[in-house]
């Protein structure tokens, strides 16, 4: 799906959310959530092909998946945490969004831990 259709979808969703905002605010947020899910679905499809290329490049470069997988995991955690906190801010819950971003950062660090370990092992084996 090309960018024009996606942006048209986003604008239509924003318009519908505006209509609902005054009368039924809860449904307005559900509608923005649904639009976000649809847009992210298209982005994930596009990203899947990028992921395939990245994996084959990593294999030819001789990088073991153990090194490469934490990078993808951290990217995933970052993307999901940012989007979810943006939705929470939309609903006026700035506090919840801040808590979620902190938790996301902690989980990303946890995911990156094996990467640091792998790099350290390769370094120590070189020395």
């Amino acid at each position: 799906m090309d960018i024009f259709k996606l942006s048209a979808l986003a604008v239509i969703a924003a318009l519908c959310a505006l209509v609902l905002r005054k009368r039924v605010p809860e449904l307005a947020m559900a509608l923005t959530l649904a639009a976000g899910v649809l847009l992210l679905g298209e982005a994930v499809d596009a990203l899947a092909s990028v992921r395939g290329l990245a994996d084959s490049l990593a294999r030819t470069a001789g990088l073991s998946p153990r090194v490469w997988r934490p990078v993808w995991k951290t990217v995933g955690i970052g993307v999901i945490a940012k989007l979810a906190s943006a939705v929470c801010k939309d609903a006026g819950e700035g506090g919840v969004a801040a808590f979620l971003e902190t938790a996301g950062a902690a989980l990303a660090l946890l995911a990156a831990l094996p990467l640091v370990e792998a790099v350290f092992n390769t370094l120590s084996s070189l020395l």
Partner: peptide, 26 residues
Amino acid sequence: GLVVVLMMVVQKISDLFNLVKGLFGL
């Protein structure tokens, strides 16, 4: 109305999260 809409949206969200889980290996 909210429950009906949420049921529809939650279904979409779970599909998306399974897709993301598969993609990012979470």
